[in-house]
Every structure is written in C-alpha cells, then in structure tokens.
Design a protein around this nucleic acid. Structure first.
Lengths: 167, 167
DNA sequence: GTATATTAGATGCAAACGTATATATCTCGA
DNA sequence: TCGAGATATATACGTTTGCATCTAATATAC
C-alpha cells in the first residue's frame, strides 16, 4: 500500500511549493524601493490597521497576522509610535491591553506604500496565473488557513496533550 | 468598467491569503519541540542540502530558497559548520565560490528533524485540504514560483529599467 | 595581455529578533 | 472578597539579521 506514502509526499510537496513561492514573491516584492521608507513587516502592521473596521487593533491581534513573537511586535509598534505613524490607547474594558491605531501620517504612508505594493503584486500574480487560478488559489489557501486557525482552539493533535504552549 | 479594479482586488487578495496561510502554518509547525535543536531556517538549509543531487550547493544557491540576505546565509552556514553539521569545499572551476555539503551528523540531524516535521505538515495540510486540493495547490504555487523565477532573468517590468539591482 | 567591470563571499557594525522573565490587570472559585 | 492562576504587554539580554563595504577571483574590453 503505497498510498500512505504518496499522500504524505503530496502534502509535503504542496507545503514546500507554497513556502517557496511565498519566498520567491516576497523577494521580488521587497525590491520595491518604497520599502526603504518602512520595512515590510512595519508596512504589514500599518496595512492590518488600515483594514480593520474599528481602526483599532489589540497588540495580540496584530500578532496573529505577522510572523513575529509578541515582544518583537511590541517593540515594532513602539518604533512606529516613535515615528508618529501609530498611536496607543488603553481600552476601557481591559486595562492590561493596548489598542493600536493609525495616525493620519500613518494612514497616509500606508496608502502611499500600498499603491506601489499592490501594483507590484498584481504584476507578479498575473504573470503566472489567470484570474480563475487566482480565485482557486485564494480559496485553497483560505481553507488551509481556516483549518489551522481552528486548530488553535482545539488542538486535536497527539492524544493527551493537555497544555501545549503557544507562541 | 470595474473589471480592472476587480482584477487587482483578486490578485491582491490571493496573495494576501497565500501569505497569511503561510504565516499560520509556519506558526503551527514552529511549535514542534524538535526545533529547539535547530532553528527553522537552519533546518531549511540542512533540508536543501539533503535534497540536491550532488550533495553540494553553492552559497548563492542556498540563498535562492531561503528568505535571508547573502551575509545572513553566510553566517548561518558558518554557525552550522561550527556545530559540525555542514562542511565547506572550494569548487575547482571557480575559486571565488564555496560549496556547502552535509556532514554525517548534519544528514542524521536533518533526517531526525525531517521526520517530525513531515508528520506535522501532513497533519496540518490534510486537516484543511483533500488530496485533489493539495495537488491543485501544488500546481498553482508551482506556476507562480516559476513565473517569478523567470522574471529574474528578464525583468520585463517598468519600461526602461536597464539596471535593476538584485538582493 | 593588461585594465576595468562583475561576481562570490566575508566582515564591521547598528538595528531588530527571540527566549526568559517581570509587571499589571483580570477572572474565578472558596 | 480575597487569593491563585491566567492573560496582556513590557523589559533585559544574548543572538541573529540587514546594510554597507571589503576582498578575492573571474569575465570583458581594449
């Protein structure tokens, strides 16, 4: 029965391909000169803030979307604040927490960088994929992401793992 | 004509989703305790070396697959060498370069980490996607990666960009 | 065949990162 | 309501990263 091995192979190859394509695209996107104004992770924070409905995100919410540890996000936000791009606010209902929001300068910078960034993304994506393929890619990666996100709540992994520490 | 806007939106959403799913999976994979022995980037180097046909890779070839700058890879390899996991060799035909290869200890460690890693990848991937979907994902990300790779040779971007510096 | 440009890696240094831990606030049971 | 544990963020400190630059070797032009 080779199907188990074939299955494993498929899963790892698909992940490997996803990872490498992300690296390749990221490299290319990072050449954009505008990223000398803000690093790409810093832009990522500005972007996330620009997208959220209320305009304010908790530090740990930012942390979900950016591949950094909590202390690193903490200091990244600190730097952005020092540059006047974001502002902090203490939420009324939980005074442990911090809410982060864009300043006007931050919003303006995000838009400026965003325009160039989006143009580059579009050029790259359409060079390799048709609209239908992009749609499929969007759906598949969405499913994958949701499955992984759902896992955080219910580990469902190795039996008897009562307390798994999270990043 | 909203189709141009819709097209741009699709491209950016697809990329966004690809990026976030990569972050989510990476986070989850990184919880694997075995990554306390080797960082995930270091494992990535060992992995790439284990895969290549000749067993030796140039430093700049490693750099293509790992999202780090050239000096960082250089020092990452330096650390791996100090730990006895890889070895260096000067190629006969180009004495500027360096060839990197696994030592026996490096190959053994790669296999050990690889086993756990592959198991985790499989669990994650199959939680969200069917085999057919993984196959499609593999193909789409492959196409994307190839398109981006092809671009390095022929920029084909903004007209009149005679000399674009590479990372 | 020598000068010039290009390419492959290495190194100095400041900035950014991760691990471990501290602090402040909240939550929940006795 | 009071204390134990959990949660959200901050800080300390050693390590790793990126940028700029340097050196060595190869390619190219003249």
């Amino acid at each position: 029965m080779t199907s188990a091995a074939a299955h494993r192979r498929l899963a790892t190859e698909a992940w490997e391909s996803l990872l490498r394509s992300q690296v390749a695209v990221m490299r290319e996107l990072h050449k954009e000169p505008i990223f000398k104004k803000v690093g790409s992770r810093e832009y990522d924070v500005l972007f996330n803030l620009s997208r959220c409905p209320t305009g304010w995100l908790r530090l740990n919410e930012l942390n979900d979307n950016v591949l950094l540890t909590q202390p690193s996000i903490s200091r990244l936000v600190e730097r952005l604040e020092a540059r006047g791009l974001v502002q902090r606010r203490t939420p009324d209902d939980d005074r442990r927490g911090v809410l982060i929001g864009l300043t006007e300068a931050g919003a303006a910078l995000q838009k400026e960088v965003g325009r160039a960034h989006v143009r580059n993304i579009m050029n790259l994506m359409e060079e390799g994929l048709s609209d239908a393929e992009m749609q499929t890619l969007l759906e598949l990666t969405g499913k994958l992401r949701e499955a992984v996100a759902g896992r955080a709540a219910a580990p469902a992994d190795e039996a008897a793992t009562p307390a798994t520490s999270a990043t």
